[in-house]
Simulated assay, not measured.
Amino acid sequence: MTTFNHSSVTEFILEGLTNNPELQLPLFLLFLGIYVISVVGNLGMIILISITTHLHSPMYYFLSHLSFIDLCYSSVITPKMLVNFVSEKNVISFLECMAQLYFFYFVIAEGYLLTAMAYDRYVAICSPLLYNTIMCHRACSIMMVVVYSLGLFGATVYTTRMSMLFFCGPHIVSHYFCDVIPLLTLSCSSTHSNEILLFVIGGINALAPTLAVLVSYAFILSSILRIRSTEGRSKALGTCSSHLMAVGIFFGSITFMYFKPPSSNTMEQEKVSSVFYTTVIPMLNPLIYSLRNKDVKSALRKAVGGTRENEPD
């Protein structure tokens, strides 16, 4: 990250999700519940995978990293939003704002991680005999290094460019976190290069993973259609269903948010859209993989059962 010394504004005020005082407490309780479920679900998934031997496979290795990324970027956004519901003025310093933007942009890594998970499913279904050879520990580790590197690179490039803008006031961010578009509207300097960079970074990091996932599933579908037994087809589809849901929700929400005409939504509608991918998706992913996965449910039952057995009478 860079040294942020290009702005005369030392702090921002986050406007929040709503200014309606009657909605503050209900929304606080709602998002507190969502955040608690997110933390418990993602942290629980990481611990469960680490302590359960039969979950030590590439698929669950990637899933534990998915939970880690969801836990990180939801913890950057949601706690600050909760503070806004119970305080009169939600102040965030310039450095904190840039840090929030930086770590939020790390969500780029999630798109590439979902791509790696699609490749894992492709190998498992299309080349099952070579699965252990291709998806060895070294290969999975290299994939994760690439995933995190791409996420950190995208976040560093764009946050560095944003920090070079001049903000002279007003300093009220029309959002509940330091998102790109509301910050660009507050800049006194030209934002043309930032807008181009946003389009390029957003385009590459959305289209590249999406195309890779589509190609992977084209081969997967072709392979499944060649399976003669109905039971075999159902089993193969079952191994992909959770991942397909996660991919559809993630890329669908990101595409809707950043690849639409600027005039098509008001800022209030932007806030509602943002809630989905900053708060709801991190909660949904562990639920999708735990409720629709027999191995995870079995491991969870054994873990809970073992805990009860170890309790003193």
Rank of each mutant, 00 (worst) to 15 (best):
E195S: 15
E195A: 14
E195W: 12
E195R: 15
L197Y: 04
L197E: 10
L198R: 11
L198W: 09
V200T: 09
V200P: 05
I201Y: 04
G202M: 03
G203R: 05
I204R: 06
I204W: 02
A206W: 13
A206D: 13
A206R: 07
A206S: 15
A206L: 15
A206I: 14
L207S: 09
P209K: 03
P209A: 11
T210W: 04
A212R: 08
V213I: 15
V213S: 02
V213E: 03
V213N: 00
L214K: 11
V215T: 13
Y217A: 05
F219A: 14
I220C: 03
L221P: 01
L221Y: 14
S222I: 12
S222P: 06
S223V: 10
I224A: 06
L225W: 10
I227G: 02
S229R: 07
S229Y: 05
T230N: 08
T230F: 00
E231P: 06
E231F: 06
R233W: 04
A236I: 04
L237Y: 07
G238T: 08
T239N: 08
T239K: 12
S241A: 11
S241V: 11
M245S: 10
M245C: 12
A246Y: 02
F250A: 04
G252E: 06
G252N: 07
G252K: 05
G252D: 06
S253Q: 14
S253M: 11
F256W: 13
F256M: 14
F256D: 04
Y258K: 02
F259K: 01
K260E: 01
K260A: 14
S263P: 04
S263D: 09
S263I: 10
S264T: 01
M267F: 11
M267K: 08
M267T: 14
E268W: 13
E270Q: 11
E270L: 08
E270N: 12
E270C: 10
K271N: 02
V272L: 09
S273G: 12
S274T: 09
S274G: 14
V275N: 00
Y277P: 00
T278C: 11
T279S: 15
V280I: 15
V280L: 15
V280W: 05
V280Y: 05
I281T: 01
P282T: 02
P282D: 03
M283D: 01
M283Y: 04
M283W: 00
L284C: 07
P286E: 07
Y289D: 03
S290Y: 05
L291W: 06
R292K: 15
R292F: 13
K294A: 15
K294V: 13
K294G: 09
D295F: 08
V296K: 02
K297V: 07
K297N: 10
K297H: 08
